[in-house]
Design a protein around this nucleic acid. Structure first.
Ligand code: FES
Ligand code: FES
Lengths: 160, 160
DNA sequence: ACAAACAGGACCGGAGGGGTCCGCTTAGTC
DNA sequence: GACTAAGCGGACCCCTCCGGTCCTGTTTGT
């Protein structure tokens, strides 16, 4: 299902919340505002801070503050900050030793183009797009979508 | 890391192998040819058959055969057949009850555009592209890549 | 009738991720 | 200068999911 981690979802929630004012906001405050348990918020914010998406202010009256505005933050940046670099399979470039029978394998590193395509798509969407998406419902997908060739199979057609 | 399941990787291997001749090929045969353990090959082929990517011939002298040629099969079709419909988070359309505090949550279903973008990117790449990719190494990414804006952060720059 | 192959499950073990907690450091405040 | 409110870094556990295997039908050529 290509599921991305739930922490990334939380990260987006936190970032959007963080964008509502440019004052510093404490992790407990964000926790109560969003309903996400406080230790989890803390963990997410720590990851985002080390990823350079937010800046932290230590000490009393400390908290977190956005580093860039939402339309400067790509979704791929959030995913990278939380889940590490995007690597679809264990056999992408790097991590050479991970695969058994890699001399026989006929797809040595062929996922790389797919990987890059996804990264491109994710880099083209910013968090501002995402929050806009929920307001203008059923909007027609900002970036050029590379010609989605409508649904080859899957009779259930669960679009998600 | 946006990891996709290893079974999908195997599926691509199997499909590419299956394309080498249009005769039916048995699951044990493919297993020995690719080095993938036989029960796993069987499972993958079953999923692909139910997804409509291969057709099966039962009985003695049975086996599997490709239904479409490789350049007619999008990567998204393979992923959908193996891993089910692509759903980045638990909170995409459908599966309404899965999320706690969904009335508070400010990103209700905002992953949908991201989801569709990925699906578009994945639908634009066919298996033929993938096998071509490994031959013409470092090829410049067939589909228009929506302007990947080069690497905001991550000093390590692990591209994969 | 036999054998070879697929079909459709059940089943199990390990890895990974969500979630929590604790001790330490920093910096405002009184 | 002491206190306190926050972040920082890491260790930790538990649960879920996935990879991998196996077994019992069912089909079909020989
Ligand atoms: S599956 Fe790893 S190199 Fe092919
Ligand atoms: S996180 Fe599930 S609806 Fe927002």
């Amino acid at each position: 299902m290509l599921r991305l981690s739930k922490l990334t979802d939380y990260a987006v929630v936190v970032l959007v919340r963080l964008a509502r004012c440019d004052e510093v906001q404490t992790a407990p405050g964000i926790a109560t505002a969003t309903g996400i348990p406080e230790p989890t918020v803390s963990k997410v914010l720590k990851a985002l801070a080390s990823g350079g998406l937010v800046v932290s202010q230590r000490g009393a009256r400390g908290g977190y503050r956005l580093m860039r505005s939402l339309n400067e933050v790509a979704v791929s940046a959030v995913i990278t900050a939380i889940d590490g670099p995007i690597a679809l399979t264990a056999c992408v470039e790097g991590s050479v030793g991970g695969c058994e029978a890699e001399n026989l394998c006929p797809v040595r590193g062929r996922w790389d183009p797919v990987n890059e395509a996804i990264q491109s798509a994710l880099s083209a969407i910013t968090l501002a797009d995402m929050q806009e998406a929920a307001m203008v419902r059923s909007f027609p997908l900002v970036l050029e979508p590379a010609r989605l060739e409508s649904s080859r199979l899957d009779p259930t057609r669960a679009v998600s």
